[in-house]
Simulated assay, not measured.
Amino acid sequence: MQAERVTVSRETEERLQAYMALLQKWNERINLVSPKDMDNLWERHILDSLQLVPLVKGRERFVDMGSGGGFPGIVVGIAANIPGVLIESDQRKSAFLREAARITGTQLTILPCRLDKADVAPAPVVTARALAPLDKLLTWARPLLEPDGVGLFLKGRQAEQEIEEAAKTWKFDVRSWPSKTSPDGVILEVSNFNRAEG
């Protein structure tokens, strides 16, 4: 499966536009994305998140960790059209995510709690974007993931360094897909991860 640029249907684009309009409205009150990103929201955040869709589509459901303003959780929920759980500890951001899920008609459940306190049925896929180093992501993702599931993590130029660091305490398989939206970006597809012994 390749992480390729996604072309979306008119209905999906309309739902994404409704989400962006809501984001712009709420961003004046709570900091969901950097104000300087508002002018290129589609390129900077939506397209980046859409890269995960081919890797998620066809799976039963997903869990998004640290969803923040909804990247990639809301975007994946809209474009892949599968159920998901979005975990976000900030109550105001959780309120925004609930409203975004409602107006876009997605099958998303918002869980307003810390990742290490999340009580969620393990899913086939766990996603995250701009959240934490890989080592930390694996710690949080492990209990949320089915045994043969995969973690899909959008990463920047530190990806290789993070893989090396995580390998000190974890055993895992990793595939790296080049980002279509950032020359320094990659999507890490991590599977079969368990704590290294000894």
Score class of each variant (00 low, 15 high):
Y19C: 08
L137T: 02
R44V: 00
E60A: 15
L115T: 04
S67R: 00
E60I: 06
Q91E: 11
A21D: 10
I82N: 05
I74S: 02
D39L: 07
P35A: 07
L145K: 03
T104Q: 09
L97M: 09
I30K: 08
L144I: 04
Q107N: 14
E43T: 11
F62S: 01
D135A: 15
I78P: 00
G105N: 08
G84D: 03
Q24Y: 08
T104Y: 10
Q91A: 13
R142T: 12
A132S: 14
L50R: 13
A121E: 15
N31W: 07
L97R: 07
F153H: 12
K57C: 05
P133Q: 09
S89A: 15
L23W: 12
V150T: 12
L97Q: 10
N81W: 02
S94L: 03
V56E: 09
A128N: 12
P54K: 06
T139E: 14
G66S: 00
F71R: 12
L22W: 08
P54W: 06
K136H: 04
L55N: 04
N81V: 05
R114C: 08
N31P: 09
A132F: 10
H45V: 06
S67A: 12
P83M: 05
A21Q: 15
F71S: 07
P133T: 07
Q51T: 08
K36E: 07
G151N: 01
R92M: 03
D39H: 10
A79F: 06
L50M: 14
W26R: 05
F153W: 14
D119T: 13
L144W: 02
L16V: 15
F96N: 08
P72F: 01
A79C: 05
V76I: 15
V33P: 09
A80T: 01
P147R: 11
L145I: 14
A95G: 12
A130N: 04
R98N: 14
G77C: 05
G105L: 00
R29F: 04
E14C: 03
A95S: 15
R114H: 11
V53E: 03
M38W: 05
D90G: 06
L138V: 11
T139C: 06
E146D: 08
T139A: 10
S67C: 07
A18L: 04
L137I: 14
P112A: 12
D116H: 14
L86Q: 00
F62N: 02
V150Y: 08
D119W: 10
L23K: 13
D39P: 05
R142I: 09
A79Y: 02
A128Y: 12
S89G: 06
I87Y: 08
P35M: 07
E43K: 13
K136I: 13
Q107C: 00
R44D: 05
N40K: 14
P133L: 03
W26G: 01
D39G: 14
Q51K: 11
L134N: 06
A100Q: 04
V85S: 06
L97D: 04
F153E: 07
